[in-house]
């Protein structure tokens, strides 16, 4: 294996071990979620969606929090290390993915339970805004320019999102509380969970958290490799122009 080829992988022994653990946990979660745990008295089998839905939104919140923290670290840190920006970007990508998963699983569950894919509930609406906000953030990351420009721009946008999300959430909450009659769609109504159901939910949270870490490690290395390729492409273009000039 050449040194370049060895460099061009996103895996290390540690991530491989972690990946194996995630695979085992996922298999356990599937078994526990689909077979071992009981049906819900009221909801029947639809309750099983919860084992994916709740961990997904958990991972999404965690990912966006990490994006905010890394963006803050980039802006405030003296070193201005682009590594912070790479972790922030990788984390936001994973967050967007998992918000999407939780929106899709949530609306499927809503269709089965409430008979409709979507209700204008405050939590649903602000989650949709959360999704759109970070899709925008990812678009900002793709604006081009140097790595430093990307890092500065996207960290400012990520920090503005931290301001924006509570405001949107608060106003949507206010909007719904004043404009909605008592709704059947009350996501706060918690069902009593029996032991195995609770275990499956906790297993889901643990599994998805491990999955998040695994994805994050790989994703930020992929971004690092992409940045390296972009840099090297520029260097090579400059070198070839020099050669051309020298040949003349």
């Amino acid at each position: 294996m050449t040194p370049t080829a060895a460099h061009a992988t996103t895996g290390t022994p540690a991530t491989r071990r972690l990946g194996a653990v995630v695979a085992v946990l996922l298999a356990l979660l599937v078994m526990s979620g689909l077979w071992w745990s009981a049906e819900d008295v009221v909801q029947g089998s639809t309750v099983r969606i919860m084992y994916v839905h709740v961990p997904s939104i958990w991972v999404a919140y965690m990912a966006f929090a990490l994006t905010a923290v890394c963006s803050g670290a980039y802006v405030s840190g003296r070193s201005r290390s682009v590594a912070w920006d790479r972790v922030a970007g990788a984390s936001a990508e994973i967050g967007v993915l998992f918000v999407a998963v939780s929106l899709v699983t949530g609306s499927l569950w809503g269709r089965l339970t409430w008979g409709t894919y979507w209700v204008w509930d405050a939590r649903l609406t602000s989650t949709a805004f959360l999704f759109i906000t970070y899709v925008g953030y990812l678009a900002v990351r793709r604006l081009g320019g140097t790595l430093r420009q990307r890092a500065r721009r996207s960290s400012v946008i990520a920090l503005l999102a931290v301001l924006e999300i509570p405001l949107v959430h608060f106003s949507v909450e206010l909007w719904r509380s004043l404009h909605q009659e008592a709704s059947v769609a009350n996501p706060n109504a918690r069902v009593e969970l029996d032991g195995l159901m609770l275990f499956t939910l906790m297993l889901g949270l643990a599994t998805f958290t491990a999955l998040f870490v695994w994805l994050l490690l790989h994703r930020q290395r992929v971004i690092l490799l992409e940045d390296t390729v972009a840099d090297r492409g520029l260097d090579e273009a400059i070198a070839s122009r020099r050669d051309e000039a020298g040949a003349r």
Binding site: I132, V135, G136, E164, V168
Partner: peptide, 27 residues
Amino acid sequence: GLAAGARGRETLLPLLLLPVVAPVLIG
């Protein structure tokens, strides 16, 4: 200010701006 300058940024403005101004629309 973010959308100023480089090409292709104009289309980004609505995506960034509209979610942020949702509280203004509601209020």
